[in-house]
Design a protein around this nucleic acid. Structure first.
Lengths: 225, 225
DNA sequence: TCTAAACCAATTTTCACATTGGTTCATGAA
DNA sequence: TTCATGAACCAATGTGAAAATTGGTTTAGA
């Protein structure tokens, strides 16, 4: 029982070092591997269990056995994510994320992008309904993401927006008529765009933070706190 | 031709206002809808084309017709995203995102989470290979995301990490031996964790930014710039 | 010229089947 | 008995083809 038990483990270790696994790090199914290493499936499974305990491999029924650490599962499952979060969490994420978006937008936005954003801000002012206001507000915030010239940041922003819509969706208040003439966002949007146009990243981030804090306050009140 | 043509459009508009569409805003297939509204498929399609021109609905072969604006395609398609980005973009995203993660972690981390992170930092120091070093480095950065107590932020961080691995993957250098004893990250990790433990969000964000700037510099050199 | 039916192509859904890690159990050696 | 061994079985997953669905296009007919 002394080295009869350790021998398969070392055999397996040696195999893993020399084997040319595919890009995904997947190794052959247990039945094949057992035959290739000239051992029973039971003893192979024991050896694999040891390696799994050490975090060197991970396994899943129907998939196979893989080298390395188990990949993160929930990365892109938006539906599952919506169930685990809530409006205040989304707001906190926006407050962490969007000011930095604004900062980078100030550094990288093109002239035509700035024009587009100004057009969105203008449409927000003229929107005859809350629905249309939100449409252009969304476009404005996304345009800032585009202006960063960073596809990854834009994708992350889009993901956050998707979650935000899904979370906010159920409690979508039916507001009366239209945004008031002196709606706080109008001026705050202008401040953000001024800073972006002036290439002042710090001011853009601050203005965005101020804007989102106001939105957060409104959200708090609408949630009844 | 005068109102024979506008009548189907108004009928369709009236339907859209009263119909109880599912959460996805999908409306019945053309054939069903045509029968329900008692009109031919051709005239229904004309009306739908009008609404589509106004941006009120969008359609796709094999999928169906949906209310609202066409959703952003790339929100969660990581594979497509990997093709459109590059290591420097990922680095810029990390620099924008992770300092704010650290700031929120400082505000919300639990004691056991701080202990976990310290354990990761310690394992980084003792790692006998670069591979294991990266393993614990990844765990440390993700633990900071967990410490924000914000499921959405953590999901965004995971997405970014997935993309980062995929992008960096092809240019994975086979470094010799192991991280040097005085590897810059060791002390920088400690600084971040000190700030988090002291509940100093600003210091945590600054320390993270400093850390990532160093990583960025190394990346630049390894890319040959 | 307009309409409705037929047809087309993109997409989703369904289903059967193979694959794979996990579990149970009878067998047999120690 | 006790415990390891291997075969059979189980449930989750992947695969791939066929069928159904759906918006788009063409065509014949009134």
């Amino acid at each position: 029982m002394q080295n009869i038990d350790t021998s398969p483990l070392e055999k397996l270790r040696a195999y893993l070092e020399t084997a040319d696994l595919g890009e995904d790090g997947r190794l052959p199914p247990e039945r094949e591997l057992a035959e290739a290493l000239d051992m029973g499936r039971t003893v192979l499974r024991k050896a694999l269990a040891t390696l799994q305990g050490q975090g060197l491999v991970w396994r899943h029924v129907g998939k196979g056995t893989f080298m390395g650490e188990r990949p993160v599962a929930s990365a892109t499952d938006i539906n599952a994510l919506v169930l685990r979060t809530n409006p205040m969490e989304v707001m906190a994420a926006r407050l962490a994320f969007e000011p930095e978006i604004a900062r980078l937008a100030a550094a990288n936005a093109t002239g035509s992008q700035i024009n587009d954003m100004r057009a969105c801000a203008q449409k927000c002012r003229q929107a005859p309904t809350w629905r249309q206001y939100e449409h252009y507000d969304n476009r404005l915030h996304r345009s800032l993401g585009e202006a960063t010239q960073n596809a990854l940041l834009l994708a992350l922003l889009d993901t956050m927006t998707t979650v935000r819509r899904a979370v906010t969706w159920s409690r979508r208040r039916d507001k009366p008529d239209r945004p008031p003439r002196d709606h706080h966002s109008f001026e705050q949007h202008d401040r953000i765009l001024e800073a972006v146009a002036a290439r002042d990243g710090q001011a853009a981030a601050d203005a965005m933070r101020t804007h989102l804090r106001t939105v957060e306050q409104n959200l708090r009140e609408s949630l009844g706190n």
